[in-house]
Nucleic acid binder design. Sequence first.
DNA 1: GTCCATACTCTCTTTTGGGTAAGTATAAAT
DNA 2: ATTTATACTTACCCAAAAGAGAGTATGGAC
Lengths: 132, 132
Amino acid sequence: MPDPDLRQELRQIETDPAVDRLVEELIGRVADKWTMLLIEILTENACCRFGELSRACPGISQKMLTQTLRAMERDGLVSRKVYPVVPPKVEYRLTDLGAGLSKAFCGVWIWAEAHYTDIQDARAAYAARQEG
Amino acid sequence: MPDPDLRQELRQIETDPAVDRLVEELIGRVADKWTMLLIEILTENACCRFGELSRACPGISQKMLTQTLRAMERDGLVSRKVYPVVPPKVEYRLTDLGAGLSKAFCGVWIWAEAHYTDIQDARAAYAARQEG
DNA sequence: GTCCATACTCTCTTTTGGGTAAGTATAAAT
DNA sequence: ATTTATACTTACCCAAAAGAGAGTATGGAC
């Protein structure tokens, strides 16, 4: 069970349904695969150019990378510094807000590292149950 | 910046690319809006029937609710207890694994509660920048 | 006999996500 | 003169996700 103090705090704020909806929208926005991965990469590597992010994030297309970075910039999670040179150079880094989110997510990463085998086991057990 | 100790620990485990992929898949799987919301609801309300979850999770369709619950069951995050009565009765609750994930997510919820106004501000600022 | 409750399940349609490929700008290297 | 490098943007397309709504099973209340 989660930390009782934090839960308590959470419950107190969560009285207003309008706030609820905002937070849920936020969760929906931020609980996205690419966003999470980019936050992780930018946490490990404070300052990245577009190409570096692209290489560090295998499987992402240029389109999705641009799109996700733009959304993150709009939400104030990353800053974007453009150097007016040729060829173009753009640097991305987490803002304080983004770094805070990264820290919040840290627990989830740790959990995932620690329990992915449990999930594999659960899946195997579920499959066995279905067949039997 | 995230807790250095935890980061350190994370980096040590994350050497094997196969493990990396598994964890990323897991994050992709679990970092889903409805999953997060259902975990939250089941944390606050230990035992829920289908209809209760449906009501507690505004906007979710029956189809998505069933689908998400099934996926969570398959991954060992929730348990499903069927009472063979008419009309049907099914109880859902978090497993220990699910409760652990809930705890890990707790930080993200707190963050969201604390910073959704910052994000709103960031969006407004971004919009203003675009127009000017 | 009809209706209700519950937890689905199925089908159909719309929406979204995301891939591919091409285009843009321009200075420097060849 | 052509190629290269970089960080996009745009247009087009497909497949997967998700919503809407009807159908199902069945025992008990009326």
